[in-house]
Amino acid sequence: MESTTTSTSRPERPVAIVCVGLAGAGKTTLMQQIYAYLHQKKEPPYVVNLDPAVTNLQYQANIDIRDSVNYKKVMEEYGLGPNGGIMTSLNLFTTKVDQVMNILEKRAAPDPEKPDRKPIKRILIDTPGQIEVFLWSASGSIMLDSLASSFPTVIAYVIDTERTTSTATFMSNMLYACSILYRTKLPMIVVFNKTDVKDAEFAKKWMADYEAFREGLTQDENSNAFGGVEGQGAGTGYMGSLIDSMSLTLEEFYRNLNVVSVSALKGTGIDKFFEAVKEKADEFEKYYQPELDRRRAERDENKKKQREKELEKMMKGMSMGGTASSSLLGDTTYKEDDDMEPLSPDDEAEDDFDDEDDREGLQARYEAAMRDQQDSTGADASFAKYLHTQRD
């Protein structure tokens, strides 16, 4: 009941959909189909392309990494291969993440100067086909954390259904999906793409019914899928046992997954995809957002403790005496203004705290001010700024 109240009191925010998938899964084509679907409904999304190596986009990106970073020049300048070039390009682009988030937040809010422009409802994020370059890199983590701190964020993991017909490749994709979920800690949808070529019902059945998967595994073993002599079940050794045990392990994982079947080529299943997105966005607000808030509060508390330790260390250093303090600071004392002019001898005399305040009283007043202002921006002011206000 409490979670519902929190989510309903929060103003409606656009949903960020991050499309990830192995190379050749049809991820960018799916993005184009989603883009067209939303435009048809007169709800144009805000699109961000994070793939610096893509040659031709099938949709119009509002923010494109290629406008900021030249992938080929990065490879030449740093002597990198394709994967290293993509990762370095993402790292360079991540330095602009604050600018990107400011743009997205402005577009998510009504514009008083342009009342006819509707706030965006969905943000689409296209990522490189080299899935590990984005999801297991620092730049990818920063981008996802920044998105999740401002918007409900959903991961759409796109799978090539035609290449998942064997139990071994199916299990590989499911392990990828599991690792993505635990890496990002965000709601995820498994999207079986290319269903115009191969229907995904077999995969859904394998996820829902262990006996059906076990039957498919037995067929693969008998057909020499894992090596051995065909028809003699010679492949029923290590590989079969490993896949069987992993399937049992992932049963709980399957229960909490949203699975949809789509054809990026023909556009079928897109409505079901957005139903799953809506469900996962609600799940984000109900379960993930409180956890993000808790982690943010924990980080703030740690920062506060760190500031208190630094203050205590500083006060101990000041207790060494004026002579020692002045020798550490050097011969020249500067005003805290724009020009940074040296103080005159008269100013230095006025700036002598030993004659005016005792150290213990100053520390007590500073700590009291910190407590009174801990919910305002003044709580983050440095000790030097506090001293400056006392002089003024």
Results as ranks from 00 to 15, higher is better:
1 M>F: 02
7 S>K: 10
8 T>D: 02
9 S>Q: 10
12 E>F: 14
17 I>H: 01
17 I>S: 01
20 V>M: 02
22 L>W: 12
23 A>H: 14
35 Y>C: 10
36 A>L: 15
44 P>A: 07
44 P>H: 00
53 A>G: 00
54 V>S: 00
56 N>L: 08
58 Q>S: 13
63 I>T: 09
63 I>S: 04
64 D>S: 06
65 I>E: 02
78 Y>M: 05
79 G>I: 01
81 G>W: 02
83 N>M: 00
86 I>K: 06
87 M>D: 05
92 L>I: 01
96 K>F: 00
97 V>N: 06
101 M>I: 12
109 A>Y: 06
114 K>R: 07
114 K>I: 05
121 K>F: 04
123 I>D: 11
132 E>A: 00
133 V>F: 12
135 L>C: 01
136 W>D: 12
141 S>K: 13
144 L>E: 09
146 S>Q: 09
148 A>I: 13
148 A>M: 07
150 S>G: 07
150 S>M: 08
157 Y>V: 03
159 I>D: 07
161 T>R: 11
162 E>H: 11
165 T>C: 01
166 S>W: 09
167 T>L: 03
167 T>M: 08
167 T>H: 09
173 N>K: 05
173 N>A: 12
176 Y>N: 10
179 S>R: 15
183 R>V: 00
184 T>N: 11
191 V>W: 04
191 V>A: 00
192 F>R: 08
194 K>M: 13
198 K>T: 15
198 K>D: 09
201 E>T: 14
201 E>A: 15
211 E>F: 13
215 E>R: 12
224 N>H: 13
229 V>F: 06
232 Q>K: 05
237 G>L: 08
243 I>P: 07
251 E>H: 08
251 E>K: 14
252 E>P: 07
255 R>L: 04
257 L>M: 03
261 S>V: 00
264 A>H: 10
272 K>D: 15
277 V>N: 03
280 K>D: 03
291 E>F: 02
298 E>R: 14
299 R>W: 08
317 G>K: 15
317 G>N: 10
321 G>W: 11
323 T>Q: 06
325 S>K: 13
329 L>H: 12
330 G>N: 05
331 D>Y: 12
339 D>C: 01
340 M>L: 12
349 A>M: 06
350 E>Q: 09
355 D>T: 15
359 R>E: 13
366 Y>K: 08
371 R>V: 02
372 D>K: 01
373 Q>G: 14
377 T>L: 12
383 F>S: 02
385 K>I: 14
386 Y>W: 11
391 R>V: 08
